[in-house]
Design a protein around this nucleic acid. Structure first.
Lengths: 230, 230
DNA sequence: CCAAAAGTGTTTAAATTACACCCATGG
DNA sequence: CCATGGGTGTAATTTAAACACTTTTGG
């Protein structure tokens, strides 16, 4: 490598973010409606080419904020996709990231060339441009793996939540059902959530206890890892 | 994005391969001695800038073969590293891959601008250029995670192996010790290895039975996953 | 008093752990 | 016959799985 280095320095790199959110309806993913070429006028993952003077991880955050207004969230790199023909404008490698947010805590607003930004139920996502469907599938697998290893469920739930909500979250992500008693036993024994002493109100049935997560235990488990098997 | 697209298409992408091999001495990693700038004359992971007309996964294979002569091995993408200043020649994103090989089955030979290629014990790796030490650490973590989830141990052992060899491999990778009886019980119960009927010979102690792996079960477990917890 | 979801224990089976001695070979 | 690593079983504990009824609230 010497003067013909030039030929290597002709690639672009983009970031594509898979942002998961959870609400009564289940697990959702955030998409934007593209107001720019290529693939103008279709729904896609919020992603963009990245500026070459910025660290990769920082770019992921910047791109997401620029398109959807979301900020202050934790993003995790999941994989790079690099098929030659994945982008019509040239050789573009894309690095996929994922993030989990409490829908209620954030206000999503389309910005820059994103004309809209909206949540789509995870089982009702349209055909996406580029290799975004492939990226989304990969992200879903990662999420499944991750929730079995780390207590990340809280990042998707409001500050105070019921055990039923937590169970519905696990069921939505893992796409399987759990026995109520065994689920509660397991979660409580892991000891990373604590009773707040509060209860639901204005519900038409027995009000559920509200729990919060225990940051101390949470951080310990994040590093030491655990196994959620039910 | 429009005519100023040009500014995005000035990045280069490289691949860095972390190839693990196992022998009597333990777990090793393959390094090359760089005969090209930058960082000429030092040991580094076998990696290179990639040609922009080739798919990413294919490039990983090509780069490794080009530098070390290794081919026909299975490579897994692990992560992309993209700090702005990680490469002195410009903005270079590097995609790290890892591979596992049976040292005895392959002949490593330095090629192209690699002046040497050699195995280094995993606990005795020199300071490496770029962010290669960071990449290697990350790869070691991945390997630990992976060996707990998939029966990949065989990719590092000769066709026929003893249970003690397998145990030493697990111990080397996971960096912990296991009870002989429990290890054997666990491994045999998983049913992905089979007795060959053969025994070691020319050893100065009771010869050990030789086992081979069971491809049927292996493939089933690769997809369904399992848990190695001891 | 009805509907709707919350909450709660026990029994059984399976998996994991801890632990110590005899075996087969070569020198 | 000695040194070296190979090979084996059981009991105790822990963890997972299956399973059904009572409680509390609002309407």
């Amino acid at each position: 490598m010497d003067l013909n280095l030039q030929k290597y320095f002709q690639a672009a790199v983009s970031v594509d973010n898979v942002v998961f959110g959870f609400d009564e309806t289940g697990l959702n993913v955030l998409l934007i409606y593209r107001g720019a070429d290529p693939y103008r006028n279709c729904w896609a993952l919020p992603g963009d080419l990245i500026s070459l003077d910025t660290n990769l991880d920082t770019s992921a955050v910047t791109v997401l904020q620029n398109l959807t207004g979301l900020q202050h969230l934790y993003m995790d790199q999941i994989r790079t996709f690099g098929r030659v023909d994945r982008h019509p404008y040239g050789r573009v490698f894309t690095v996929a990231y994922f993030a989990l947010i409490k829908i209620e805590d954030y206000r999503v607003s389309a910005q820059s060339w994103a004309e809209e930004a909206a949540w789509f139920p995870i089982h009702d996502v349209p055909d996406l441009p580029f290799d975004h469907n492939e990226i989304l599938e990969f992200a879903k697998e990662q999420l499944k793996m991750k929730i079995r290893k780390q207590p990340i469920g809280f990042e998707l739930l409001p500050k105070h939540f019921t055990l039923s909500e937590l169970q519905r979250l696990y069921e939505a992500i893992l796409d399987e059902e759990f026995d109520v008693r065994n689920f509660r036993k397991k979660i409580l024994s892991m000891d990373f959530i604590a009773d707040t002493g509060l209860k639901q109100n204005a519900v038409t049935h027995r009000p559920a206890k509200l729990y919060k997560y225990n940051a101390r235990k949470y951080n310990k488990l994040i590093t030491s890892g655990f196994d959620f098997d039910l």
